[in-house]
Design a protein around this nucleic acid. Structure first.
Lengths: 338, 338
DNA sequence: TTTGGCACTCTCACCGGTCAAGTGCCAGTC
DNA sequence: GACTGGCACTTGACCGGTGAGAGTGCCAAA
């Protein structure tokens, strides 16, 4: 018995099932793939594959469908990432080149990713905490309000309006601005926060309360989860492909898509390279029949954030992985140019 | 024959159908409403109502369901807006009072509106073009870049980074800042644009190219559709209630929800008061079995923007209208306090 | 180890009958 | 003239039975 052929059979089953959405039997499998053996042999192989937990039958006398474990093996060892067609590459390129700012880049990537994969696309905004400060600005508004603007290396602009207890003198504002700038520009945001804390000491005791309150807000802005958590979702209309039963197949996904916290967990840590989580591997109950393909994007040396797609476990993994990878590369490049 | 009773019958049909989601027959209608007449009489009334186009039968020997025209009549003449329960009022209040900025207010209102109505909620960000300028700031960044920040009366903060052809002198930036401030603060944005155009003349011919390019961007920011079009959507999981057929009932709605342009048209012009559009009145093909309840929000004298819900035509109109109205009032008040 | 054959199992689509709900119409009553 | 009770008719939903089709497991033979 050849171990290789059994894997070929598994691959054929996955491919057929993804294409037809129907349990695949030994005979119809041979109609579409030349394995050079008879149906009976395939049946034997299938029995073994089922014993080992890679495929399963919805009911006796039905064909087989892959299990999560089967998809896992397929992704890990049986598939090669499809190359994108030139048309697809061009689509990504033309979609992304017109973008004017970070918001725009994210918006457009969600759209193109959803379109390419026919799935639900998720794109996380470039992380604040992993960027460096490019520019920081402090502006006195009317009354005792101060506007704080931070521009990061990835082009994100964050602003906060701070309500102070007392009005700031113009000279103090100017002084603060230069000192904050000196302390933070070029630094990663977490380190910038540390430097800022030290900086407080250098002010006269009189000014410290005000300075502290500004620095606190600034630090919050740098490290605040809420601002680090921004995420764009698109292509929800593709949920149609997830299955016909709304309550079990579609509703949980829609609910997850509205929960930033869940989305973040799903995208996962921004490790370099493609990550595929299948079924229960997503760690989310409602998503047990979906799979998530994600990838970090960023510059060569620094992952800025993550993007990916959510689709049914019976998806075209090679194509999806190719699309996610390509969009991640383009987005990383686009933001680096900024 | 009493015309009033026929309207009572229509009201009963709408109420029953909304409650049960099933065609209502003459007999079961009398089980739930005391009309003081026999089923046969109700049948006669129903026949007339059907002739007039207010109700229809899915098939012979089925009960009747209201047509769009029937709902229209119901909304216009047969229903009174339900008062919100104290619990609901409290829910809105507690949800909105914690908001820290405009983004937060909008985010939270979408959520609470979706929750209250069990429908898809849409909230437009406060319009830029209808706000006045509260503060405007011009900051020279590194190189020939300039950061422009506009804060409006409704609390929105918009920023743009402008790439100039030449580096600006510090004194020119300062000069520009004060002059732009003088020209625009307190003005409505469209008028501010006009004033800015005039202002260009007051600069020396040397500086005019730079000034023009800044003013242009500023004007674009003020009147740009893209920034005026920001919209938040929530409660898409409630699409479950729209019907069981994904392709005809749910997909079109999801698609519409992803198209800013469509959404804007659906919310409609921000006229004061509640607006209800039923079925084809939405002017959007895919939404022929949905209804949109929307309302402008803002201060007494100025509508800032619109919010509303999208639901199936068979919705509880009085309750939905009450919720939309209440949330609009609260949001208007919250933003006015800002 | 592979293969062909065979008996077996299960789902699904189809069919016909029955049931319940609802209608339209008509003749009778107030 | 408006309302009512009665009746015949229509129709979708439900149910059980049936047959076809697809697929399986197993076994003996190559």
């Amino acid at each position: 018995m050849s171990d290789d052929r059994r894997l070929d059979v598994l691959r054929a089953i996955v491919e057929d099932y993804v294409a037809t959405q129907e349990p695949v039997g030994s005979k119809s499998l041979l109609d579409r793939h030349q394995l050079g053996v008879s149906p009976a042999t395939v049946r034997n192989d299938m029995a073994v594959l089922e014993d080992e937990g890679y495929i399963t039958q919805p009911h006796t006398s039905a064909g087989r469908i892959p299990t999560d474990k089967g998809y896992r093996l397929f992704v890990d060892r049986l598939s090669t990432v499809k190359a994108l067609s030139p048309a697809e590459r061009r689509a990504i390129e033309t979609f992304l080149t017109g973008a004017v700012d970070v918001d725009d880049v994210v918006q457009r990537s969600v759209k193109v990713l959803a379109q390419l994969t026919n799935q639900v696309a998720i794109v996380q905004y470039p992380s604040l905490t992993r960027s460096t400060v490019r520019h920081i600005e402090l502006v006195a508004l009317e009354g005792s309000r101060v506007l704080l603007v931070v521009i990061t290396s990835s082009g994100r602009v964050e602003q906060r309006i701070i309500e102070l207890v007392e009005t700031l003198g113009d000279d103090l504002v100017a002084d603060l601005r230069t000192r904050i700038t000196r302390a933070t520009v070029g630094e990663r945001l977490p380190e910038a926060s540390l430097k800022l804390a030290e900086m407080i000491e250098t002010f006269s005791p009189n000014d410290r309360p005000v300075v502290t309150s500004i620095v606190t807000t600034l630090t919050q802005t740098f490290t605040n989860e809420r601002s680090d958590e921004r995420i764009a979702v698109g292509g929800t209309a593709n949920l149609a492909r997830f299955g016909s039963d709304f309550d079990t197949a579609i509703k949980p996904v829609l609910e997850a898509m509205e929960e930033q916290v869940v989305l973040l967990r799903l995208l996962g840590e921004a490790t370099q390279g493609l990550s595929v989580r299948i079924g229960t591997e997503t760690g989310h109950e409602g998503l047990s029949s979906t799979a998530i393909v994600s990838s970090a994007y960023g510059t060569d040396d620094l992952a800025l954030a993550t993007l990916g797609t959510v689709g049914p476990t019976r998806m075209d993994y090679p194509a999806t992985m190719a699309a996610v990878g390509a969009v991640a590369r383009y987005v990383g490049r686009t933001l680096a140019d900024n």
